[in-house]
Design a protein around this nucleic acid. Structure first.
Lengths: 216, 216
DNA sequence: CAATGGTTTTTGGTATACCAAATTTCGAAA
DNA sequence: TTTCGAAATTTGGTATACCAAAAACCATTG
């Protein structure tokens, strides 16, 4: 098992801070201060910031401090649209390419998700949610697709995290995951597409609601 | 007009060398030597290499020299599959979102492509080809989509470049571009999807042929 | 008091120095 | 002659030093 590199570790830490809200959207990320604060030099800190920029969590400005990203609703919706296309393609390919091991893995993740539902804190449950979707993408056996899909999930991380506040949403997600898993096991392309549409339509609605509520 | 940053300039230069074949696939990119050679320090050279790795033109190995990428045929085909999905989505969105200016721009690029057809060298004609596809993606008015699309075009750059050798292919491309433009101007989703399928199916066939021929 | 211009400070970009891991080289032993 | 291992070298990773551009501050002036 290879340890993550120093820049990746730093990126992970910053990412958690951003998702948890310790670093608020719009705040500048002064690389010197952050580096000192975390006991590393500017070089790996710079690389970490590039990683997060690639994930859309921070925005770079030439010759200025990078900012914690604060994308407008329209941007997020654009991402959801692309994510839907990517997930539908994943599903289609997975219906023909998924092995039994792939399906077993999915079933295991889904079981974990269900068992965590009542106990785990949001971030943990949320990461299991993510890994479920990534496992479907990987079942397509198309690495380029899985990688791009992962990148879009990451970009929507914060928005999705915000929508996971309410228990009711998480209940719906539970049912939708079951529907996805069932359709894939039956290798039923049409049902899988329908399930993805429902899932992402629901996500889009939730995000819209959160944005409206935030408009205070 | 903002000048590209130093790392971007370096990345551009390296990219040309890779596409032109000056840097052959599989060759190591020693950052110290390259930096010295180009009269810059290692820091921006490192960043440039990260950019190219993000584009899939070089592969990073922990604690080892990065290599010029040499993807197997299956990898490239995976990329074509995703590119098709992205272009179809672009087309669909562009049919509703494209403005008249967008269409004018496309017409202009297409005219440029036609006029260059007999005169320009491969790389120039090729870049016009790329810009045509990127302009369609931008006409979707979905920035995330256009950006991802651009990234996939870049990853397929070398493979596409290799297929552009034969005049006959380029003739076909000319006709297919006309079909794409026509369908989009008529805002005919179905026709546009058909045209994209034909275009990318053709591309996949060509790449396969080039790989078979290279198998010497 | 507000506006302006110049000076100081802050901060990202680049170059360089240093370190540790990986590779290569080369000689000793079987 | 071949093989194995230790020393030397190469090379990516990290820390630091330096520079130029941007921002903040402040005094001067209308």
């Amino acid at each position: 098992m290879s340890e993550p590199s120093l820049p990746e570790q730093i990126a992970n830490e910053l990412r958690r801070d951003i998702l948890r809200g310790t670093l608020v959207p719009g705040a500048p990320l002064k690389e010197r201060d952050r580096a000192l604060e975390m006991g590393v030099s500017r070089t790996p800190m710079r690389e970490a910031i590039r990683i997060l920029s690639q994930e859309g969590l921070v925005v770079l400005r030439p010759a200025r401090s990078p900012l914690v990203a604060d994308p407008p609703l329209s941007d997020i919706m654009d991402h959801v649209i692309v994510l839907r296309a990517l997930e539908e393609l994943s599903g289609e390919l997975a219906c023909t390419n998924a092995t039994e091991e792939d399906l077993d893995k999915l079933r295991a993740i889904n079981a974990k998700f269900e068992s965590e539902f009542y106990t785990a804190d949001r971030l943990v449950s949320f990461e299991t949610d993510m890994s479920f979707h990534m496992a479907i993408a990987r079942a397509s056996h198309n690495y380029a697709l899985a990688d791009t899909h992962r990148s879009f999930l990451a970009r929507l991380w914060r928005a999705r995290f915000l929508t996971s506040t309410r228990r009711r949403n998480r209940q719906t997600v539970l049912e939708q995951h079951a529907a996805l898993l069932d359709a894939l096991c039956r290798r039923d392309r049409a049902a899988l597409k329908t399930a993805f549409d429902a899932h992402l339509g629901h996500l889009a609605d939730d995000i819209r609601k959160v944005f409206e509520k935030e408009q205070t």
